[in-house]
Nucleic acid binder design. Structure first.
Lengths: 337, 337
DNA sequence: CTGTTAGCGCGTTCAA
DNA sequence: TTGAACGCGCTAACAG
């Protein structure tokens, strides 16, 4: 910057002012500065700017995994909004481990991020509400934490699940619907199970969850056991993409026909759902939108620099996409909602 | 840091030395410093460290899109290696646009990244070799740029494609195999097409590429036209995941049976490939490995701080995963390779 | 409208 | 072994 100032024949402050448009500068001085910048290929050092005490123009994102398309899409959405706001994004993964999440969040603080967007690893053991994060804006998404101060973006997990299960019950007469979950620690598993449970209870039926479908092998074993029973389940409701895939695979290996022998609905839509045979009926969540909204919330906070007692809790709607795996005919119509 | 020094009753330099282990410090002084750090919850300001002229302990990644599982997986791999090296990652997307890529790369320089890993948007118009990047370590992957100085990680695009097409020709007797590409600008499209082309020419057959399958609609139109011909193609070779999906969807809509009426092999494996009906035969590339190797290369450069005339060019092997869509029986065996 | 002074938090250089 | 002074590149606050 000194060089620029010298070449332009002005003081460093004038250069700073030209760059930030923070104060009026005479047209000719500005012109000389621009030429000097061009000539020297000068770029301001963002580190120094941040150090000087203002904003780092950087936010952090912590997701469990990046290879999961759900999280990747969210990261993409956030990054897009960040760009629109002139921000950069530091991204890292927690591997669903609260300790790792905490360590990464601390590291981000050390890098002086202006805000943090987190998909919390474990709601119960989250340490994000510790005092050290008091002066950092935090938005959580997909899963909430207890701390009321954080803005949170969720989807209609419970009502979406309930609607899907009711579709199986009311339109297709299913009595024995089994819930396939990943594990019982995840907030989303519990919320979606609760929707399923209510639909079952309200229909006078017995909820039957399986929370041990964390791998293909486990899922295959569970499904095989179920299918071999005297009165096997006539439908499955799968918690997410992964469990849907495991269940599909297990059913395929067992030679069980969908939807003739058993019906299936999954939570979370994906690209190949309508290419699979049969097309999968799913509860679609607005993934990209979740990311966008979370990022917008964060930038609002950053702009106002407010730390409210109670953060916003935004719940985005989901949509039941009727295809064939539930037993409906290929009309391509959505559920009336 | 001043506070820590005061509480510990030492100078700031002693604190610095304890933190960096950059010089011997008496055990008792170190102990007092540790306690003061603990008490105050002190964390060093990474910005200031970076500003002081050394490393920022941050690398940048630029990928075209994040919602593409291929790129997301690579980002995940890089992030994992970065963590192992105590580095943070700034991540952004170029949207396949060289201008955007250039702008983002510049921004990363302003943030003083120690190195950059890029999936170049367009090999021909890349501006990564400009002088401003002379002092930044850059590794490219998936696609090369002309600049010989960069380390590059690629996969066997050409030989992998050739092998797949030869499998269609030799094991299943296909004569008319059509190549489905996304567009002709992408390096990977050209490389994989070249493998296909050679296989066809060596078999005395006419290569037939379609480079206009950039969307479902376009692909469906192309496939529909082809299928209606007098002697329609008996097999398709799809450039990547996306074109495979488009082609599959088009064939499905037209009611064409795979592999009975036409065979299909795609480049790049994906989770659902063995759940689809029929299971997809694919050329599998070691995605995670590509990311890992690229990151290792970058950290080697950062450690040695060398800027060689000629960078390494590493080509990772691919594997033909034989499933059912090529016409093979469901034996589950891989090709002999 | 413009330049000067000071300091953000750290690490290097030097002297004690 | 330790501390004091200086400067990395930038900008807020004040003078001019």
């Amino acid at each position: 910057m000194n060089d620029v100032a010298r070449v332009a024949g002005v003081g460093t402050m004038t250069v700073s002012r030209v760059l930030n448009e923070s104060a009026p500068v005479s047209a000719e001085a500005a012109e000389r500065v621009y030429r000097a910048i061009e000539k020297l290929g000068y770029r301001p050092n963002e580190m120094a700017r941040a150090l000087r005490g203002l904003k780092s123009r950087t936010i952090g994102i912590i997701v469990p995994y990046l290879y999961d398309p759900f999280f990747a899409t969210i990261a993409h959405a956030i990054n897009t909004v960040a760009k629109e706001n002139g921000y950069s994004v530091i991204l890292t993964t927690s591997n669903e481990d609260p300790d790792s999440e905490y360590a990464e969040a601390q590291l981000m603080l050390q890098r002086r991020v202006d805000g943090l967007i987190v998909i919390p690893a474990d709601a119960h053991r989250s340490r994000l509400s510790r005092a050290e994060f008091d002066k950092t804006h935090i938005v959580t998404l997909d899963r909430p934490v207890q701390d009321r101060r954080f803005d949170t973006v969720l989807v209609q997990n419970q009502s979406g699940s309930k609607r899907a299960v009711q579709h199986l019950q009311r339109e297709h007469g299913h009595k024995r619907v089994v819930f396939i979950g990943l594990n019982k620690h995840l907030y989303t598993v519990r919320a979606r199970f609760e929707g399923y449970r209510r639909a079952m209870l309200e229909a006078g039926l017995q909820p039957e969850p399986s929370f041990k479908c964390g791998s293909q092998e486990l899922t295959s074993a569970v499904i095989a056991g179920l299918v071999r029973e005297k009165n096997p389940p006539t439908a499955f409701f799968c918690f997410n993409n992964l469990t849907t895939r495991y269940t599909l695979r297990a059913l395929l290996d067992l030679g069980v026909k969908i939807p003739e022998e058993v019906a299936l609905i999954g939570f979370d839509d994906f690209e190949l759902a309508e290419i699979l045979h049969p097309n999968l009926t799913v509860v679609r969540q607005p993934i990209y939108e979740v990311g966008r909204v979370a990022a917008s919330l964060l930038f609002d906070r950053i702009k106002c620099n407010e730390f409210p007692e109670d953060g916003n809790k935004i719940v985005l709607p989901v949509e039941l996409i009727i295809r064939r795996s539930c037993g409906c005919k290929p009309s391509g119509r959505n559920a009336a909602d």
